[in-house]
């Protein structure tokens, strides 16, 4: 029998704003860079988590979106993370490349290099919530709701996880597009490819000045 799963919460960070379950959670039209934008969301969440400041921007936005999904939620250790994006960790890859391009000014650093893998974002979220579960980071041209949903459902169907956070976290040259959903067996909107595509595509009636 086909089991049914539900989108309990979803979070989007796009067009200079943060949305939770379709409602505006935070707006910021003044920050002119991703670092300040992320810091503003961190402050709004009233988090005290010094590791946040060490993260690269891909990790920061992944972490913040997951914090918004998990606000007031009971944490389940067996929550899988299934993320995808287009640019992998290229923003930080370029930073690391800059440290080795000039033989006269050669300064590669472990603190940057460690973030040249996209799945580090999954590690950061796992550490924060003590998720001892499945992680997978996929790379596609664009958000593929059908693939992400099928893979997440497969993890739930085969008892490889009891909950899943899945979605799209893409950062590239000051552009950003973040969309995460929290899938459970019990409550929320029943997940379908159509539903997932629609809530991902919702632009909440705003177009970013920076887009």
């Amino acid at each position: 029998m086909e089991k049914k799963y539900y989108i309990k919460h979803y979070c989007a960070i796009k067009n200079e704003a943060v949305y939770k379950n379709g409602e505006v959670y935070h707006e910021d039209e003044t920050s002119d860079n991703l670092k300040d934008f992320a810091k503003g969301i961190y402050k709004k969440l009233e988090l005290k988590y010094p590791k946040f400041y060490k993260m690269d921007e891909l990790c920061k936005f992944s972490f913040l979106a997951s914090e918004i999904l998990l606000m007031n939620e009971e944490i389940d250790e067996d929550t899988a993370l299934v993320f995808a994006n287009k640019a992998s960790s290229l923003v930080t890859d370029r930073k690391h490349q800059e440290t080795i391009n000039d033989p006269e000014n050669y300064f590669p650093s472990p603190a940057i290099f460690v973030y040249t893998l996209p799945n580090i974002a999954l590690g950061e979220i796992s550490i924060k919530h003590k998720f001892k579960s499945e992680n997978a980071f996929f790379v596609n041209e664009k958000f593929d709701s059908s693939f992400i949903m099928n893979y997440s459902q497969m993890l739930l169907d085969t008892q490889k996880a009891t909950k899943v956070i899945c979605g799209w976290v893409d950062l590239d040259s000051n552009k950003y597009d973040v969309f995460l959903t929290y899938l459970t067996r019990e409550e929320g909107k029943q997940i379908t490819i159509r539903e997932l595509t629609d809530i991902y595509n919702n632009d909440y009636g705003r177009i970013s000045r920076r887009a």
Binding site: V114, E124, S126, I127, H129, K132, S133
Partner: peptide
């Protein structure tokens, strides 16, 4: 097959 994160340290 199974894949489990340590939830301990990134590097």
């Amino acid at each position: 097959d199974a894949s489990v994160n340590d939830a301990n340290h990134i590097s």
